[in-house]
């Protein structure tokens, strides 16, 4: 796997969207693949939670008839956790502080997810 190319994508997201604090790419079953996180964030915990979160959101979208799942976002009083589906086998987590502009994150992350998906597809 081309970790340098993946790292460049994660770096772009953090540099281009004010408020992004941490990023993680993980397998859909919650195993971390590549992480850029602060010391207080445990990558394996975040990856496992994100996998569960995405699974529930995907099921909800399917049951309610919302179409294909794009992202699911946890809103906290101090920040956000956005989880994106990269493919059937991988996901991306973006953590942000309370100033994060979610609209801009969604806009910026769409092309990144496309590219990350191609990098991860051998």
């Amino acid at each position: 796997m081309d970790y340098d190319a993946l790292a460049a994508e994660l770096r772009t997201i953090r540099e281009n969207v004010a408020g992004v604090t941490d990023t993680v790419i993980a397998a859909s079953d919650g195993i971390p693949i590549l992480t850029d996180v602060a010391k207080n964030v445990e990558p394996s915990h975040i990856s496992a939670l994100a996998a569960a979160d995405l699974g529930i959101a995907r099921q909800a979208a399917e049951v309610v008839g919302l179409g294909a799942l794009r992202q699911t976002v946890v809103f906290g009083s101090e920040g956000y956790m956005a989880v994106y589906s990269i493919s059937r086998t991988a996901l991306m987590v973006v953590l942000g502080d309370k100033g994060l502009n979610l609209g801009r994150l969604l806009h910026e992350s769409r092309p990144s997810i496309e590219r990350i998906g191609s990098i991860m597809t051998p």
């Binding site: 992480t35 991988a90 051998p122």
Partner: peptide
């Protein structure tokens, strides 16, 4: 500023 680490996952297949 950017602290990347990977877990050595060889493939998603």
């Amino acid at each position: 500023a950017f602290s990347f680490s990977h877990w050595g996952l060889p493939s998603l297949r």
